[in-house]
Design a protein around this nucleic acid. Structure first.
Length: 489
RNA sequence: GGCGCGUUCGUCUAGCGGUUAGGACACCGCCCUCUCAAGGCGGAGAUCACGGGUUCGAAUCCCGUACGCGCUACCA
């Protein structure tokens, strides 16, 4: 049986796309891509209070940034639209009509205070189902009269009396059964006519012919209820896969306290989309237990539901950062240069035109810095001394490496040695500077650190000789001269 | 309270009856070295939550306990 896979990611636009949602999206997308199926994006915007168009737009941007393209949904449309729940009222209405017709839904006139009391009673009693089904067996004419009179009412699911325990066959958890007795006649449609979550998602999943529901763990307990709705609708039940939660380092729900949690925030903090994708994919799924660097292409060919782990995972920013560094290091120079541009621009160090104009210069810069970067935000600080027109040595660095008689002698000797170079490139610079310590009778580390601080303004920098070469004769000499006189440039 | 899920190095995980319990991040040491990194080599780190079973043999199968989490809403 070769069934066409149709999966969906259904975020609620009540906030930005956070890492938990992103991982859910990744798994859905990966399964669709690996199986040649369809990845659907649906916006669960039924919470009118908190849903905003801005959030929706941001979620779409985050998904795109991660490289998760959807086949049906906002902006691309598709044959099963609309893809915003708020635009699907007629679908919920007709689904309810079908359920009214087959007797699987009934109106309930109980007031909020009555329900509260019933809940109390149920909970202090044997703990079984919540609602006591008061309105389930109301005479038909009574019901008709009360509705005609405009009495407020909700519509509830009529859980079949003869329904046995409900089996959820979950791709990650295996088979779990829920006693039918624990299922109450929950609300499908509110008194204002809007559908509840458990109703709307099932109607949508059924209408959109979703075959696999991959979502957060928090929905596992809702699944038997949803299965009941699928059955009432006479629709086949999709396959489920419930993902464990992602926690913060303290084992608590991930929140701002733990640093960045939204995809957008990681972007702003210099994390690469391929690194986030890789890290998140591996947080709860494994290719083989040994491989840690996994590309989107690998995901597309090798992702499978049966290698998703059951246990909750703690989000580890350090590993993400390490991974990000890996991706930066392995990136071809030309590509890294392109990716650097926005960061250079926002730091005011260079424009795209500058980079294009000195392309070769930037290409030779890449190997000097790429193995020193963990985040794109570190680019500006590490190359700033090469590009800035307002060179300001770090006072602490000066105090440490450019203070005292030996340091000053080193710097002026360096100036003298470099000044006479006929060819200004890494090799000649290196030869000239390496000869200094012996000539001056000063330890190499002292000499070179003094030159480093003078030229880069810091005790920590890319390789010195290369840096001096890239900086160019005029600027390098000017900085050495300034340093030897203890003034600014 | 009821129902459900989860529990392997600090962290992410491999493992699916017989392994010296493997890998990765982080950590420590050494090498490399002009700083910082990167890289190489090595190390420490897991009584597989606990207690009972089943079995010749259990991290792996069964039962229970503890702890954590979720659902139990006219939230999603």
């Amino acid at each position: 049986m070769t069934e066409v896979v149709r999966v969906r990611f259904a975020p609620s636009p009540t906030g930005a796309l956070h890492v938990g949602g992103a991982r859910t999206a990744i798994y859905n997308w990966a399964l669709a891509r690996r199986t040649g199926g369809t990845f659907i994006l649906r916006i669960d915007d039924t919470d009118a209070e908190r849903s905003t168009a801005e959030n929706t737009a941001q979620i779409l941007r985050s998904l795109e940034w991660l490289g998760l393209d959807w086949d049906e949904g906002p902006e691309v449309g598709g044959p099963f639209g609309p893809y915003f729940q708020t635009e699907r009222a007629d679908h919920y209405r007709s689904a309810l009509d079908r359920m009214k017709a087959n007797g699987s839904a009934y109106p309930c006139f109980c007031s909020a205070t009555e329900l509260e009391a019933k809940r109390e009673a149920a909970r202090s009693g044997d703990g079984s189902a919540g609602y006591d089904r008061t309105c389930r067996h109301l005479p038909a004419d009574t019901v008709a009269a009360r509705i005609a009179a405009g009495e407020p009412h909700v519509w509830r699911l009529s859980v079949p009396e003869d329904r046995g325990d409900i089996l959820v066959d979950d791709a990650v958890r295996g088979e779990t059964t829920f006693p039918a007795s624990a299922m109450d006649d929950f609300v499908l449609v509110r008194s204002d006519g809007t559908p509840t979550y458990n109703f709307a998602t099932v109607v949508d999943d059924a209408d959109m012919e979703i075959t696999h529901v991959i979502r957060g763990d928090d929905h596992l307990s809702n699944t038997p209820r949803q299965i009941l709705v699928f059955e009432a609708l006479g629709h086949a039940v999709p396959r489920f896969a419930h993902l464990s939660m992602i926690w913060g380092a303290d084992g608590k729900k991930l929140s701002k306290r733990h640093g960045a949690t939204s995809v957008e925030a990681f972007h702003e903090e210099g994390i690469l989309p391929e690194a986030l994708l890789n890290y998140l994919a591996l947080l709860g799924w494994s290719l083989d237990g040994d491989t840690t660097i996994i590309s989107a292409d690998t995901l597309k060919t090798s992702f499978s539901l049966d290698r998703i782990s059951k246990n909750p995972a703690i989000f580890d920013p350090e590993k993400l950062e390490w991974m990000n560094g890996m991706y930066i290091r392995e990136m071809p120079p030309g590509v890294l240069i392109e990716r650097m541009v926005p960061w250079l621009e926002s730091a005011g160090l260079a424009t795209a035109d500058d980079v294009a104009a000195r392309h070769d210069w930037f290409v030779s810069l890449v190997p000097l810095i790429s193995e020193r970067l963990k985040r794109m935000t570190e680019i500006a600080p590490t190359v700033g001394f090469l590009l800035t027109d307002r060179f300001e040595p770090d006072p602490a660095a000066v105090a440490k490496g450019l203070t005292g008689a030996e340091a000053y002698r080193s710097v002026s000797a360096a100036h003298a040695a470099l000044e006479v170079l006929e060819v200004w490139e890494t090799e000649t610079v290196e030869t000239a500077l390496r000869a200094l310590p012996e000539a001056l009778g000063i330890k190499p580390k002292i000499v070179l650190q003094a030159v480093r601080v003078a030229v880069t303004g810091s005790t920590v920098s890319p390789p010195l000789f290369e840096s001096v070469a890239l900086l160019g004769r005029d600027i390098a000499l000017a900085r050495l001269d300034a340093a030897s006189r203890g003034t600014g440039e």
